[in-house]
């Protein structure tokens, strides 16, 4: 059992444009349908706004823009994947808009290829590896890096500028 645990990791897959990405299941919290997104003034373009998920207010980012793709259009299949990321030792709930949810899959560690093999189509620092599953090429994403500190700082900057966001942030911290 211990060996199995070591050799296999569980991932959550999702689609961005035409590409399939995978993120570690440990970081994922839930998948939700897109609720009403409250826009936040003076926030970066990839930040779509804030949402309220069962009493928890969290920021929502456009994952496609994070990967240097075209801004997302909210469609029927569009969902928000919520992650619990570690920012400066703090666990913060963040939502990412993806085109379509995938599945929960288990991949052996040997299957995962190293980053330099993938090329530099997307912001390569976000991609940690890649693998094929059911003849589908899937890229492995480091979710913590996606919500990097400086970007969160930007979020924080915007929070500093707006008392409302401060208030929300304060609430989330509580």
């Amino acid at each position: 059992m211990a060996q199995n645990e070591n050799t296999q990791n569980t991932y959550l897959t999702f689609r961005l444009g035409t590409e399939i990405f995978a993120a570690s299941i440990d970081k994922a919290v839930s998948i939700i349908e897109v609720p009403e997104i409250i826009k936040v003034p003076r926030s970066p373009s990839y930040m779509k706004g804030i949402i309220n998920v069962r009493g928890t207010v969290m920021p929502v980012i456009d994952a496609r823009m994070k990967f240097g793709m075209k801004p997302i259009e909210i469609k029927k299949r569009t969902v928000i994947v919520t992650f619990r990321v570690d920012i400066e030792g703090e666990n913060v709930d963040v939502g990412a808009l993806v085109d379509e949810p995938g599945a929960v899959i288990q991949i052996k560690k040997e299957q995962i290829m190293n980053r330099p093999d993938i090329g530099s189509k997307y912001k390569s620092e976000l991609i940690v590896g890649a693998f094929t599953h059911n003849e589908q090429f899937i890229m492995l994403v480091d979710i913590d890096k996606v919500f990097t500190l400086d970007e969160l700082t930007e979020i924080n900057d915007s929070k500093e500028e707006h008392s409302l966001e401060e208030h929300i942030e304060a609430e989330s911290h509580k």
């Binding site: 299941i25 440990d26 994922a28 998948i31 939700i32 349908e33 299949r77 969902v79 949810p101 929960v104």
Partner: peptide, 23 residues
């Protein structure tokens, strides 16, 4: 179709929870 989509999301959530629960 909507129903199946929602069911899918529910199942995914359940899968995530199951994965987190480990063995």
């Amino acid at each position: 179709d909507d129903l199946s989509f929602q069911t899918n999301i529910l199942a995914l959530n359940a899968s995530i929870e199951a994965a987190k629960a480990g063995q």
